[in-house]
Design a binder for these strands. Sequence first.
DNA 1: TAAGTATTAATAGTAATACTATTATTTTTG
DNA 2: CAAAAATAATAGTATTACTATTAATACTTA
Lengths: 228, 228
Amino acid sequence: MKYILQDLKVNINNNIYLKDPESSTLGKKIVEFSILLIDEIGFDSFTFKKLGVKIGSNESSIYRYFENKHKLLLYLTSWYWGWLEYQLVFTTNSISDAKEKLTKAIEIITRTTKEDSSFSHINEILLNKIVINEYSKSYLTKEVDSENKDGYFSIYKRLVNRIKDMIKEVDGDYKYPTSLASTVTEGALHQHFLKDHFSSLTDCDEKITPTTYFINLVFNSLNNQKND
Amino acid sequence: MKYILQDLKVNINNNIYLKDPESSTLGKKIVEFSILLIDEIGFDSFTFKKLGVKIGSNESSIYRYFENKHKLLLYLTSWYWGWLEYQLVFTTNSISDAKEKLTKAIEIITRTTKEDSSFSHINEILLNKIVINEYSKSYLTKEVDSENKDGYFSIYKRLVNRIKDMIKEVDGDYKYPTSLASTVTEGALHQHFLKDHFSSLTDCDEKITPTTYFINLVFNSLNNQKND
DNA sequence: TAAGTATTAATAGTAATACTATTATTTTTG
DNA sequence: CAAAAATAATAGTATTACTATTAATACTTA
């Protein structure tokens, strides 16, 4: 797995960036250190000026890669969802049993990222934390509709769709497969956040993981006579 | 109901504001027009300067009520959750049947606000939209923990707790009542957002409401032998 | 290898944001 | 009516979020 993901190049909508950050050393440094800096000070306080200082580059050089920090966030989160999607497809591909397949899928999208593929410049553990803390900000904007039209969220949408399809495979009669898929995907981020900051609003802790909770939630709804 | 809510004064943690906006005409204008302006241009573009122009007051006068726009958002959303809580308690109080009570509660927290109590200066329809679009931004910050400690989110937490209690009343053996309560509360906002901006990620539309979906979701999990 | 072309860095500058401080004016209230 | 409180006006600051221009460096190919 590690060795296959090694050469992974996530395909990101090329309108998100001005110049492909994968195409140069500076570009990779921008991506690498923006993850460290956003994790450190939060997206709201993050600026290209501060990033420039961190990487010993000029602010204006960063602007040649990304129009603004919002686009950079879209880039990072798209990369994350693409990376998760890859794991999802790779891991579940060979599973023929629908229930087992869905279980595995939920595991992947609800777990905490614990391993960082040290060879690449992207720290997946920190990126996972950034997605938990900042992803909502990428779409809770006045520009969502036009950015959505431009395909900036397509990787995320494709991922949710894959889960929806797996839900349908388990129970073709269930009425809300799409909402359930989006609830799990977004809800997982939320439960992780609550676990870290509002422990009184979640049952998740060291023992009970969001994975346990969501597997239970999903399978309670599927093939349930209450539904028919 | 209308007439009882009329005199409602939501009790908001007084560290959120510098001076109680309910205590003066200017304060009420700040609240009233900030709702209109945030709805219009979004919280990210909203500034005290723009609000000042809108209400014909000086920027610096607004700063005497709220430290910054983040605190104002905390105020508005706290008001909203307090208002919802009031409706929840008022409506479910007299219901003795646990299932019926929970059903009603889910209805209240997942429905779209459609009526505005025209007597007050607060437009609840727009405030509901603001909560859908901006609430996450109030807690996805580096300051969450200290602000949480200061009680800035206590109304929201109390609301989620009430739902948790109702879930427990229906099924004392269900293992994740708190997570389920927070999933419904936050998930409802999310499904409304998806309905408006990412229709491919939800089954909710004009016919199927988030209420329908979440009532189904919750009751599939409760008193379900799959759980035991 | 020289010349041309990208790329990046450095510098400077702008409009807007997010405030703070001071003083003047108006309103409230005792 | 006088004092106190509230509000408005003005000015100012540091930072943000950029844009534009020019200089320096590296890379490429005739």
